[in-house]
Design a protein around this nucleic acid. Structure first.
Lengths: 196, 196
DNA sequence: GCTAAACTAGATAGAACTATCTAATCGTGG
DNA sequence: CCACGATTAGATAGTTCTATCTAGTTTAGC
């Protein structure tokens, strides 16, 4: 799979700036609300460059952004799960979610879930699905290590991802971290309730 | 508050058709993805009528739709919570969510959460917040009846709403009811884990 | 049944968005 | 250090979106 084509340093920097701006906008307004004009304005990259870097246009840019954001969060999650027990890693992820919404004054939600919520585009949907599956697999693996059976571990992992996404959505809507704190508490209760 | 201005039967029917179409589109694509053109096309109502019925335009239409959908779901929830124990009512709500996404072939999510996820509009945000608060209050009341203290009841209620919204989002993204089934299982576990 | 108000219809203006195209600039291998 | 491919810039075309405007139709009260 996908050995990345080598690119110049300059091009990489441009891609990076475009993807950062796209990720922000997607987390704020979803896929329909993220206009390419604003992506360019925020990133300081010219319109033409966008289509050079992402020849398939918006669809390409959005799917790449979702995969990238999702991979970054996934890596963090995997590192945490390797270093500490499930309970603590889950708590850390919710703390991270709280930090995200607070830093942006409740403007930004999840850079994967927010665009996925509104996406009528198949490549976006596929990218978001891959991301959710990766997250879930990492959690399920840790849950099995603690002695849970495969089915319980999977269900727990899926529920934790859903809870995280939902709590970010509600928190951003209500402009309050309370939903995230309540969800973190519930996640902990869920983890211990399903402990072997 | 708000005694509704009396309206003709015809006007009520027009409003109704507009709101139904808007609710569908919002649940499918969020607020930015729901174009007024398509609202009119789906409802068979002319463009001008829309602005007669909703003089403040899209903002007005969307907020009204969110409030209406939210009230309908809230009423169902309240009725269920009055008729059966919390566990069963929660299970019924998740079953209802499964039916919704299946009936629409995974095209529609929550008519409140989906637009809220992408909303940069204050009236939409306020409407969605009211809806979430209503749902949560109904659940918390039932949870307190079962002997939970106020804090636990509130946190449980908030978490259940978040879990529901997140599971709908993930289920629609993955085109699978599995996230909703896992979330229903987790919700039941959460309810019994917090039982007095 | 007639009149006035409420409602509906469809055209249109103006802004925003995606995508494309041409010219200019950069930077790296020979 | 020069020449050529890779990259960037900004203008522009064609859609689609929101909102408004004017004319026509229906409903309800007297």
């Amino acid at each position: 799979m996908g050995a990345e084509r080598s690119r110049s340093r300059r091009a990489d920097a441009t891609r990076e700036r475009l993807l950062v701006a796209t990720e922000e906008l997607l987390a704020e307004r979803g896929s329909h609300g993220a206009g390419l004009n604003e992506v360019c304005a925020r990133s300081g990259v010219a319109y033409g460059s966008l289509y050079h870097q992402f020849p398939d246009g918006k669809s390409d840019l959005v799917a790449t952004s979702v995969r990238r954001s999702g991979a970054a969060i996934g890596e963090l999650l995997e590192v945490l799960l390797d270093q500490m027990p499930l309970t603590e890693a889950v708590a850390a992820m919710f703390a991270n979610g709280i930090a995200t919404v607070e830093r942006s004054a409740f403007a930004r939600g999840c850079p994967v879930g927010t665009p996925a919520a509104t996406g009528d585009d198949e490549s976006l949907r596929a990218a978001a699905t891959e991301v959710f599956v990766r997250w879930r697999k990492a959690i399920a693996k840790s849950a099995r290590r603690d002695g849970r059976n495969a089915r319980t571990a999977d269900d727990l992992a899926i529920a934790l991802v859903s809870l995280y996404e939902g709590a970010l959505l509600v928190a951003r809507t209500e402009r309050s971290t309370r939903p995230l704190r309540a969800a973190a508490w519930a996640a902990a209760a869920l983890v211990s309730a399903t402990a072997s």
